[in-house]
């Protein structure tokens, strides 16, 4: 792979749950520095696509090529309710997300302190470091999850429905943060959202998936036809 190779390339990707196909013959290329928005209704296979890229959805055929820089993408999964009484602080949450063999017995290991504090600073949430996860607002928790995903300095960040469960103010603040990470930190992002409005003014390119199994169609915002079952497109 050369330094100019795409960060990610899928070819004829078909994803299934059991016998049910959720995505068929999907091809797509993600270049470095892109902020790709993927939208579509529930059941269109958006989240499953992210899981396939991560290698945790194995019921698939086709190929996914990841550039060595994207071997370990950062990932912020769809909002899952967190046990409000889970006794873990924001900085401890980052510590358990670190790719390291440094033993951990709670708190922040000395060798990880710099990295964790740096990421919390970068996302302007240093003041939340010692706050329990259960005491965070939706927007604060989402920033902590993004900080955890960025802890290992990935070249590619995948976000699954990052604005769900956020009020409009928190969603706008999150959008601003993602734009900042994209422009100032040269991060490549793939953002999945069923809310088209969240991707407006955020994504540099958009793909819209349809709920009907076996078909993928381009976003209406492209304004030109693309052959069904093959999406290797670019749009500004």
């Amino acid at each position: 792979m050369t330094s100019t190779s795409p960060l990610l390339e899928t070819r004829s990707l078909t994803l299934r749950y059991g016998t049910r196909e959720v995505l068929e013959d999907f091809s797509c290329t993600v270049e470095r520095g892109e902020l790709l928005g993927i939208s579509g209704p529930n059941g269109a296979g958006k989240s499953t696509l992210l899981k396939a890229i991560l290698g945790i959805h194995r019921q698939s055929c086709g190929t996914i090529h990841r550039h060595p820089l994207a071997k370990r993408p950062g990932y912020v999964p769809q909002h899952a309710p967190i046990d409000k009484n889970f006794p873990l602080t924001a900085s401890e949450f980052l510590a358990i997300n670190a790719h390291t063999r440094i033993p951990w017995i709670g708190g922040i290991p000395r060798k990880l302190r710099h990295g964790i504090c740096g990421k919390l600073d970068c996302l302007e949430i240093a003041h939340l470091a010692h706050r329990p996860l259960g005491a965070l607002s939706g927007g604060e928790l989402q920033r902590v999850r993004i900080a955890a995903a960025l802890l290992n300095d990935p070249a590619l960040l995948l976000l699954d429905e990052p604005s769900s469960h956020l009020d409009p103010t928190a969603a706008a603040s999150l959008k601003k943060l993602l734009l900042h990470l994209h422009s100032e930190h040269s991060l490549t992002l793939i953002v999945v959202s069923h809310a088209e409005s969240f991707l407006d003014g955020l994504a540099t390119r958009r793909i819209s998936l349809e709920a009907v199994a076996g078909t993928c169609s381009p976003s209406p915002s492209w304004g030109h036809p693309v052959p069904t079952h093959s999406l290797t497109s670019s749009a500004g």
Partner: peptide, 16 residues
Amino acid sequence: LRPLTLATLDPELARA
């Protein structure tokens, strides 16, 4: 302890 804690809090994130 680290993987067990992450798997307990968020199994999907742990798989990733």
